[in-house]
Design a protein around this nucleic acid. Structure first.
Lengths: 223, 223
DNA sequence: TTGTTACGTTACGGTCAGGATCGTAAAAGA
DNA sequence: TCTTTTACGATCCTGACCGTAACGTAACAA
C-alpha cells in the first residue's frame, strides 16, 4: 500500500517496464529540496514550484512522482525518521524517558515540528493522507512505545492490567499539545515527570527503579 | 487587545463616532453563517465569499470587520465557548472529570473539532493569530482547569507541591492528541482513567472522594 | 527502428484571499 | 438643511498557488 492505485507511481516502482525509466537521482533531489525548504518556511510556505526549482527539476517531474504536495511532504518526512535511541535493556522507566526525549527532539530539531501543523490540517481534509501519515510516521513510533510498555508489563515493572494505549497517549499527548496548541516549550523535566506520573499509577514495587521520592527532582541521570 | 491597531475594527467598537454606523445585525449574521459553514465544510473548506453569501452580505462587509479569514473564525468560535459545567464544590476529582468531559464535548460536538486542525496550521504561520487564539480560547479554559487544581491543593486533596501546569497538560494533552493526530475516538472512560492517573501521583489520602475502586485496581495513592 | 515513457518548457484553468473602485445609503455635526 | 464621514453592495482585480495539458526531445526496451 501507499503504492499503486494512483496515476503517479511511487519512486521505486515505476509504472511500466517499458519506455524511459525514471531518474532515481531525481527522487532524492526532490526529497532533499523538500526537507530543506520545509525547515525554512514550514508546510504552509512550501510551494511545489520552489521545490522543483531547488531540486533543479521541472514541476511536472515532481507531480509525476507525487500526486499532491501533501504526499510529497509525508514521504520527505519519512526519510527523516530513523530511531536514534535503543530500547530494551534498561527497564521501562528509562526506555520511556528515552522515547519521550526522542519525540521531543524529533519535533523540535527536525523539520517535522514546522511541518506538523500544516500536515494536521491536510489530514483533517484528506483521509487518504491521514492514513499514510499514521501508517508511516505515527505507526512505527507507536509500536516502539507499545513494545516498551509491553516489556515493562512482562517484566513485572508495570501492573498486568496496564492499559497500554492509555500510557502511550498520556506520555505523548502532552508533547503534541505543547507543540501544536499552547506553543509553550516543553520542560526539560518532562520525560522524567511524565514517567513518574505513569509509574505512580501503573508501576509495581518491582519496577521501582528509584524511590517515588521527592517530586521536584531526582538525582537520577538520563544516560 | 484584539481591538485597535488594525484597519478593520471590531464589531462592537467602530472606528470613529462619525459617519454611518455599522449594522450590528450584520456582525451576528456573519458569525452565524461562519459557524454553520464551519460545521459543514471545516476550516479549509470555508471561503469568505460563501460566508458572505449565506449571511446575505457583501464580501467587503466581512473584511471591514475582520482583516483575515482566520480572525473571523477565531471570533466565531469564541461565541461557541460558554462553559457548561460548574466547578468548585465537588472535589478535585469530580471537577477535573467534568472539565475533561466538557473539552471532549467541545471538540466533538461543536464545530471546534472541525476547525481546530486548520486553525493550528494558521497559528503556526501567524503569531498574531496564535496569540488571539490562546488568549480567547485556550486561556479561559486553562484558567478554569488551573483553578480546579489549585482548589484541590488548597483543600489538601492534592499534594502541596503539585505542578499545576503539568497536571493540566497531562489531562488535556491526550485529548488533543487523539483529535489531531491519531484520529482515534476518545474512550468514554478517559475522564475517569486520566484523573485516576493524576491522583495516583499527586493525590493525598484526604482527596479520596471515592474508593480507588479499582476500575482496574490500584489501591493506593501515592504518598 | 518503433513504441513507450521521462524530461523540460511553457502555458493554462481554477480557486481563493484580500484589496480597490464607485455609486449610494445612513448617520453625526454645523 | 447641508456637509462630512463612514457603511454598504456590486464589481473588478491582483497575486498566489495547485495541479494539468501540450509539445518537442531524450532515453530506454523490444
Amino acid at each position: 500500500m501507499t503504492e499503486q492505485a494512483r496515476g503517479p507511481r511511487r519512486p521505486g516502482g515505476h509504472g511500466s517496464d517499458r519506455g524511459r525509466p525514471r531518474d532515481p537521482e531525481m527522487d532524492r533531489m526532490i526529497l532533499d529540496a523538500t526537507i530543506a525548504l520545509l525547515a525554512e518556511v514550514g508546510y504552509v510556505g512550501l510551494t511545489v514550484a520552489e521545490v522543483a526549482r531547488r531540486a533543479g527539476v521541472s514541476k511536472p517531474a515532481v507531480y509525476r512522482r507525487w500526486a499532491q504536495k501533501s504526499q510529497l511532504v509525508v514521504e520527505a518526512m519519512v526519510t527523516q525518521m530513523r530511531p536514534d535511541v535503543a530500547t530494551g535493556d534498561r527497564g521501562v522507566a528509562e526506555d520511556l524517558r528515552a522515547l519521550i526525549g526522542e519525540l521531543i527532539d524529533l519535533l523540535s530539531r527536525t523539520p517535522l515540528g514546522r511541518v506538523l501543523p500544516g500536515l494536521v490540517a491536510e489530514m483533517a481534509a484528506d483521509p487518504a493522507l491521514a492514513a499514510s501519515y499514521r501508517e508511516l510516521i505515527i505507526g512505527p513510533n507507536q509500536r516502539r512505545w507499545r513494545a516498551a510498555v509491553d516489556r515493562g508489563i512482562a517484566r513485572g515493572e508495570l501492573s498486568a492490567d496496564t492499559d497500554v494505549d492509555a500510557v502511550v497517549n498520556a506520555l505523548a499527548g502532552p508533547v503534541y499539545f505543547g507543540v501544536l496548541i499552547t506553543g509553550e516549550p516543553i520542560s526539560a523535566d518532562y520525560p522524567r515527570t511524565a514517567v513518574d506520573l505513569v509509574l505512580a499509577r501503573y508501576g509495581t514495587q518491582d519496577g521501582q527503579d528509584r524511590p517515588p521520592s521527592s517530586p521536584t527532582h531526582t538525582e537520577e541521570v538520563r544516560e
